[in-house]
């Protein structure tokens, strides 16, 4: 057993290989850390977004209520206007009739 050269095949590869794999693993880790950081931001954003969505929901409700109110008001105004219109027409008809009566009655009286 000649022990001039020590039987140790592992030492050189370990040295060369160590940093490489280390760097690879480190790159992977850095990437994952990046991702984790981004996802942390995302989580914050999602939380904020959730808050905003809730507020939007509120506002949409308010909007719906006010739109409903506008609709009711418009409907009320419509009816009101219709009545006004009807009354106006009736008044007009009445006035015309009165006018006619005023015109026709003197004439009839005059010629009779």
């Amino acid at each position: 057993m000649s022990s001039s050269v020590p039987y140790d095949p592992y030492v050189p590869p370990e040295e060369t290989n160590g940093p490489e794999s280390q760097s690879k693993a480190a790159a992977l880790k850095a990437e994952i850390d990046d991702t984790v950081g981004i996802m942390r931001d995302n989580i914050n954003k999602v939380a904020e977004r959730g808050e905003r969505l809730t507020s939007i929901e509120d506002k949409a409700d308010n909007l719906a209520v006010s739109a409903q109110g506008f609709k009711r008001g418009a409907n009320r105004v419509r009816k009101q206007m219709w009545w006004k219109d009807l009354k106006m027409r009736a008044c007009l008809v009445l006035v015309i009739i009165i006018l006619l009566v005023v015109i026709i009655v003197p004439i009839v009286v005059h010629f009779t």
Partner: peptide, 15 residues
Amino acid sequence: TDNLDIKIHMNTQRL
């Protein structure tokens, strides 16, 4: 939504 809400409210009041 906020703006619309206000506008609609104004319209309703005007009506």
